[in-house]
Amino acid sequence: MLITVNSKSVEVNASGLAEALQELGYTSPAIATALNGQFVSRDARAAITLTHGDALEVLAPMQGG
């Protein structure tokens, strides 16, 4: 299944969001996710099923002012 992660097209085998993150190497606990512009909490990821063309955002702590 083809989805976009941070605006890059990627192929994933997993159909669940939590599994897809693992498959793609996003293993840090310090990440936040949004799917198609909607916030998805860490607790909600396991119940989310991805569909072709989904746009996933994965964010992490960064320096800021």
Binding site: G25, A60, M62
Partner: peptide, 15 residues
């Protein structure tokens, strides 16, 4: 602090 896009494998953890 802020949030920015994370690359697979993670680099923000150290900060």
């Amino acid at each position: 602090v802020s949030l920015r896009r994370e690359s697979a494998g993670g680099s923000g953890d150290g900060f």
